[in-house]
Design a protein around this nucleic acid. Structure first.
Lengths: 196, 196
DNA sequence: GTCTATAACAAGATAGAC
DNA sequence: GTCTATCTTGTTATAGAC
């Protein structure tokens, strides 16, 4: 397992598609560009996949799964609920590139296809649910005010990250992302009962 | 002023482009689609505008200006700082269509063009600045805790809206948007000093 | 499995008539 | 100012050789 064989043709196609979907979106990504980046001919692509949308589906599923695992590493860490949510909010990101999953929600062809949208839906649904669990657990332990609504707050946390990307890309500067994260962290810190 | 003459060719072109950019983004919008929606021939478009990007620039500027005015109506209203920010967060939106300005930040060709990105930058910069002013004013009046960081909180508020759109479109459901808004409103309400 | 050739159509812009 | 060709290039897919 995980012996480092060089990736096969199919694998290279999926990885190239992941990169291009992140950079250019679904509409902006042509099969030709995928083939050039993967270094394979057109015949190979249509042998392994029925077309652009099938390849995009494989790539989107992969990207969503990778993002889920990276997020779970932060949210599953030891520490208080605040610490774990802070770890998620502060995890290393390529902010100006935007979110590889969130980006897809702005693509008409993706959102209008039930199949292509499903991985996005599942990923964000899982994320909100997982943050809700962490916050609920924090309340049980007395780390967070009982008045806090875990589900609503979880949606806020997820939205701050996705919206932070938008503000940062508009400004061509990561500062608005960092400010938005600091803002929600400060609001959340105020929900932590004072010690003693 | 504002006598209801039917819109001229140039005006129809700009409005059609605004609609299409919102629906399909820059890459997904073809001159042909614009012409068909505006009901004019190709010659008219290239007479009034040098090409697709010039027309997009006019449309983006218009959309940003319209959104700025709609936001200002909420933030300029009478009431406490909390009320005014709440009015902005709760203002009527076509959530599943996404933000017509924020949407553009996911378009490679837009973000990479200094000219096309500028209206987005100015709009969001103004928005954060304006919310910062409202929050600062609230602090001066004793309506909000002095410990609150107005600029960071303003970025959070703007990000929640933009991120809410992303979550809602992923879910094909406005619920995550509403939850994110309710979450940040509750966190903000906790910053309002108790009366008496 | 992988390649090149080719087809059918759309994008984006230009030319020139009216 | 507006219209209809026309041009060049790119997109997406298929065909058939190797």
């Amino acid at each position: 397992m995980s012996t480092q064989e060089p990736p096969g043709t199919q694998e290279r196609l999926v990885r190239s598609t992941q990169e291009l979907l992140w950079e250019r979106g679904y509409v902006g990504t042509s099969p030709k560009a995928i083939l050039e980046r993967a270094g394979v001919g057109q015949g190979s692509m249509y042998h392994h996949f029925s077309g652009k949308s099938a390849l995009a589906l494989a790539a989107i599923r992969r990207t969503a799964e990778e993002l889920k695992q990276a997020s779970e590493e932060c949210l599953d860490a030891p520490g208080t609920a605040y610490d774990r949510v802070a770890a998620y909010l502060l995890r290393e990101r390529q902010v100006l590139r935007g979110c590889p999953v969130g980006r897809m929600t702005q693509d008409r062809d993706v959102v209008q296809s039930a199949e292509l949208r499903r991985p996005l839906d599942e990923m964000f649904d899982w994320l909100r649910e997982r943050i809700t669990e962490v916050l609920t657990e924090g309340q049980r332990r007395g780390e967070l005010a009982a008045a806090l609504d875990p589900a609503a707050t979880a949606a806020t946390v997820a939205a701050v990250v996705q919206g932070g990307y938008v503000l940062a890309r508009a400004a061509d500067d990561t500062a608005p992302f960092d400010a938005a994260v600091q803002g929600v962290l400060a609001l959340l810190a105020a929900q932590v009962p004072a010690v003693g």
